[in-house]
Design a protein around this nucleic acid. Structure first.
Length: 256
DNA sequence: ATGGTAGTTCAACTA
């Protein structure tokens, strides 16, 4: 069994205890983290190792930064997209045996029509191209992370209020659909749901208390992994903790 | 077209 998880922790320094607690409870093989907001030198490597994990990272001070914690050793394949020079540390691709894990912190986009929104759409084009190449080399492949896209209205607490807004706009959803067109499956949607479930709730206006959320964190699996995906769920418990991240972890299990 | 909160860093930016 391969258990893969993803969590935007919004500062690993602040959330370290939550992460260690969660690793102990869930024991995933892989935990991809986004928005660690730490440089590689400042990672709490000893705490992570004491928990029984090794870490690969593409860190950055103040903003962004991604890392992958794993039970077994991995090998870095990429820390960005080939030919796309980007000072923002949002990508970490690593191989664990014959399985590739692509950890992503997709740009937020700020506001439809803004420079940041243009950057987001361009970034997503690069991601699609890189994903096509990766799938050729690694039939067993997962894309995980904070995609900052709610793929459909069923992923949004109030679709009317969010209609056309950043995270939900048609161009973003089209980019997400093109990513799935490379052959990937949204693991969460492999299983029927009777209620809307979310991975992110705005800190403002009591978003979590009122369950005003969006499903913007995803685990996308290549055909070989999708065929053996036996579960995918969102764990909202860490969002209830004192001083939580604004995101909840998502995890998937594969029969391998 | 603004506010609400949080993290980093210390006035402002990002989300």
């Amino acid at each position: 069994m391969l258990k893969v998880a993803s969590w935007n922790v919004n500062s690993l320094r602040v959330r370290l205890e939550h992460v260690l607690q969660w690793l102990d409870a869930e024991q995933p093989d892989i935990l991809a983290l986004q928005e660690i907001k730490l440089t590689d030198e400042n990672l709490p490597a000893r705490d992570i190792e004491a928990a029984g994990y090794t870490v690969l990272s593409n860190g950055q001070k103040t903003y962004n930064g991604v890392a992958i914690l794993s039970r077994g050793p991995g090998e870095v394949l990429a820390t960005g997209f080939p030919g796309y020079d980007d000072p923002q540390r949002r990508v970490l691709c690593a191989a664990y045996g014959d399985t590739a894990v692509l950890n992503l912190y997709v740009p937020n986009g700020s506001e439809v029509g803004s420079d940041k929104y243009t950057y987001k759409l361009q970034w997503l084009e690069r991601l699609e191209a890189y994903t096509r190449d990766l799938l050729k080399d690694y039939p067993r492949c997962v894309l995980v992370g904070d995609f900052n896209i709610a793929p459909a209205d069923e992923d949004v607490h109030d679709p009317e209020a969010w209609h056309g807004k950043v995270l939900c706009s048609e161009p973003e959803r089209a980019a997400f659909a093109r990513l799935l067109d490379t052959g990937l499956s949204d693991c969460f949607r492999l299983f029927p749901r009777d209620e809307k479930l979310y991975t992110w709730w705005d800190y403002r206006a009591a978003g979590f208390r009122r369950n005003r959320g969006l499903r913007i964190d995803h685990i996308l699996a290549s055909p070989a992994l999708r065929d053996v995906c036996r579960d995918c769920r969102i764990d909202i418990e860490p969002r209830r903790l004192e001083r939580p991240s604004d995101h909840a972890p998502i995890l998937a299990e594969f029969d391998l």
